[in-house]
Amino acid sequence: MRGLIAAVLIWHLAALPPAAQDGPLRLAVPEALDASGFAQHLLPRFSLKTGVRITRVSPGAAAEMAFGEEGRPVFEGPAQRWSFSHGGDPRAERFLEWLQSDVGKRTIESYTGPDGESYTANLTKARVEEETVYEGDALAGEKLSLLHCGRCHVINKKNRMNGLGSTPSFAVLRGLPEWDTRFATFHLLNPHPSFTQIKDVTAPFDPTLPPPIVPVEITLPDLEAILAFVSEMAPADLGAPLQLQ
């Protein structure tokens, strides 16, 4: 599992050039989905709503996100379930949240193809997912979380009075879609890049731009321990599905 996390993190760093955040997102769209005209219907509506531009590319081409069989199931049709995956770009996460929102679902279901094909966002088929097992030391992960993350986030009852009100607790984050991807790639999500160092993964800080706070310095085994700790945590019960902005 440790090797998988390392590969994922290094892939993110290698795949996204420094200017990637300034250009359009690239979405890998399988030929069957692209030929139906569905992607051409869907993407401009998201861009008009958010200002985030998306360019369609073929599977196998360099891309920040993809429709296919892997990832988060988002819609069905014709006779196939389509999932969405991405490499950690916050804009891609925003696209996923839009796909799962009421507006996104209505957009998906408003399309009718030239041959009468349609899509639904109401996923009714049973889906058995292989449970991911994190081999890290969960007890060590708790200590690391309290030490490094507890200055901003409420980790558990041990620091429930110490977190910042503007940051979500670990229990709330545990309830988000793809929580494990968020934690595994947290160093890519603002504001973490400005003060986070993962040994053999992140580039050293620019000496002319020192971190604004005491840096978080961890290793890949530390990260896996944190993932093991969070995987055992019960998601917060907020009484209703989360509405992500």
Rank of each mutant, 00 (worst) to 15 (best):
D137T: 12
N190I: 01
G141M: 03
D115R: 12
L13R: 14
D206A: 11
L16A: 15
T107D: 03
G68D: 07
A138T: 09
F67P: 08
G150K: 01
A66M: 03
A92S: 15
V29A: 02
A66R: 15
E93N: 08
L164P: 00
V8M: 14
Q21S: 12
R127V: 12
H187D: 07
N159R: 06
I226Y: 03
G77D: 06
D200R: 13
T50R: 12
L176C: 04
R174M: 02
R106S: 13
S85A: 11
V52G: 00
E64P: 09
P18E: 07
T181L: 00
P17N: 11
L173I: 15
D22P: 03
E135D: 14
E64Q: 15
S118G: 07
V230W: 00
S118M: 09
T50Q: 05
D102H: 07
A63S: 15
D22M: 09
L164W: 07
M65S: 01
A20S: 14
E69C: 04
A92M: 02
A140I: 10
E93W: 00
A39K: 07
A14T: 07
G136Y: 02
L96N: 03
A7K: 14
I218Q: 10
Q197E: 10
A28V: 07
V230A: 02
N162I: 02
F183R: 08
L220A: 13
E142S: 01
L96E: 06
T196W: 01
Q197L: 09
P114C: 01
G51K: 01
A6D: 10
T124K: 13
M233K: 13
R174Q: 07
T124N: 14
I108N: 03
R151P: 00
E131R: 05
A234G: 03
H192D: 04
A63C: 14
E129P: 02
A35N: 01
A171E: 14
P241R: 13
R81W: 08
R72H: 13
L238W: 07
S166Q: 05
A138Q: 08
T181Q: 12
E135K: 09
R26S: 03
N156G: 09
S194N: 08
F229Y: 15
A79G: 06
N156C: 12
Q80H: 12
L164T: 00
D137H: 10
S231N: 14
P168G: 05
G175P: 05
Q197R: 15
Q21D: 10
P207G: 10
E64A: 14
D237P: 01
S83G: 05
F170W: 12
F229C: 06
